[in-house]
């Protein structure tokens, strides 16, 4: 595990850019601070330093969604289930637990947090195409598992 200072220096600019894309510059600043405070609180509980980047983007994505909801009048809350009725993120995270890490991150970020593939590519350190492939592979694997049960 790197010291928090190192983690922060590595990802602060990308996270800020991501939050500006999602929320606009004004709201991105508070969301930025909240993202890294949340990361700081959880940091001692992490068991290893793998996927720290995806972890940071997951926190930022979650905060961006909360911000969107807060900004929207009640009654207009979007359901997080995707177009063909896949489950929302709480259930999804649980379901996806057994997937390989990259597929799991791609599935959860796409269908749980509604990020687009470009952002997921950034989060995973690859690109939009690889993110799309990882998400589809994860979904196929989940479906196979479902059929077996």
């Amino acid at each position: 595990m790197p010291p928090f200072e190192r983690f922060y220096e590595l990802y602060r600019d990308e996270i800020y850019a991501f939050l500006i894309r999602r929320l606009g510059r004004d709201r991105a600043e508070d969301a930025f601070q909240e993202t890294f405070l949340r990361a700081l609180r959880a940091y001692p509980t992490l068991r290893h330093g793998e996927h720290l980047r995806a972890w940071a983007f997951t926190i930022a994505g979650r905060i961006a969604i909360d911000e969107h909801r807060r900004a929207r009048p009640a009654g207009e809350l979007p359901e997080l289930a995707s177009e063909d009725g896949r489950p929302a993120f709480a259930e999804l995270e649980h379901l996806a637990e057994e997937l390989p890490p990259t597929e799991r991150a791609a599935v959860v970020l796409r269908y749980g947090y509604d990020l687009d593939y470009a952002d997921i590519g950034v989060a995973l350190g690859s690109n939009a195409t690889a993110a799309r492939q990882a998400a589809s592979a994860g979904i196929r694997r989940l479906r196979r598992k479902e059929l077996q049960q």
């Binding site: 922060y8 602060r12 600019d13 800020y16 850019a17 600043e29 601070q33 405070l37 700081l40 609180r41």
Partner: peptide, 22 residues
């Protein structure tokens, strides 16, 4: 996109203020 020095300073100050640092 680089964060502004002001935002950077604000986050660092908040982290200390909330006693989140070892």
């Amino acid at each position: 996109m680089t964060i502004t020095p002001e935002l950077d300073r604000r986050f660092r100050a908040a982290a200390a203020r909330e006693n989140l640092l070892d």
